[in-house]
Amino acid sequence: MKIALIGYGKMGKAIDAIATAKGHEVILRVDLNSQHLLEKEHLEKADVAIEFTTPETAYHNILKCFESNVPVVCGTTGWLDKLPEIKEHCEQQHQAFLHATNFSIGVNIFFEVNKKLAALMASQPQYDVWMEEIHHTQKKDAPSGTAITLAEQVLAAVTRKTGWVNAENQQPENLSIISKRIDPAPGTHTITYTSAIDDITITHTAHSREGFASGAVVAAEWLKGKTGVFTMRDVLNL
């Protein structure tokens, strides 16, 4: 499989190493100094593109892939207000798009555990719920996309909470997400249900970027040759 890597920071380099070790060929590496390569003449040679950039550039990069008829796997967060537009473009142009706030297989299983626990706690009003996420200091958005996904899952079930806030919070209707930036943490997410009697806590802790990078390569392998809009739930058949 021929891969175009759009974004060549720490995550891009980790994806490069894993994809190469699996026998794939990375034919294009686009970083801040090589934006001129993000054109159809280069992109169309790839079987799939993997995009990990910034909230400011992701939307444009994805459209470039669609114009070049290249399936795109995107892990950039912080731009998802435009996700409905991207989905519409994808479907209208019969392209392939897969987005995830986190490609780690463990995190995607954790998402399912989170939804199940939230459903169980929905009928237990004696429990308050709050969240914490910890990432490295180079993380550009807060809360993390993974934390927002987890929060939205909680809010869908625990209707006594009406929205999330990225701060410690005293309003009972708000779900508090506390964001911490501490090096070298690649990512820890914790959801805590607390009552006067006891606490219930679930946590996912990443030990390195390898899980995220490996999952992105698995997603790219799965997406090749398909059309439509997908998530990691489709890849993992969850």
Rank of each mutant, 00 (worst) to 15 (best):
S179A: 04
D141T: 15
R181W: 09
K161M: 02
A147C: 06
P172T: 00
S179G: 05
E168K: 03
Q171H: 09
A156G: 08
K161I: 01
S144H: 06
E173M: 08
V158F: 01
G163C: 13
L155R: 03
I148K: 10
A151E: 02
V154E: 09
W164A: 05
E152I: 14
T188G: 05
T162E: 11
I182T: 11
D183V: 02
I148Y: 08
P143R: 02
P172F: 02
P143W: 02
T188F: 03
I182H: 14
K140L: 15
S176A: 10
T162V: 04
A167M: 13
I191D: 00
A142T: 12
Q171I: 11
K161G: 02
P186T: 11
D141V: 15
W164T: 02
E152A: 08
A142N: 15
S176L: 10
P172M: 06
E173W: 15
V158I: 02
G163Y: 15
Q171F: 02
L175S: 02
S144V: 15
W164Q: 09
T190I: 14
T159A: 10
P186F: 11
A147W: 05
L175T: 03
I148E: 11
A167E: 06
R181F: 10
P186K: 02
K180S: 12
K161V: 00
K180G: 10
A157S: 14
S144M: 08
L155S: 00
G145D: 01
E168F: 09
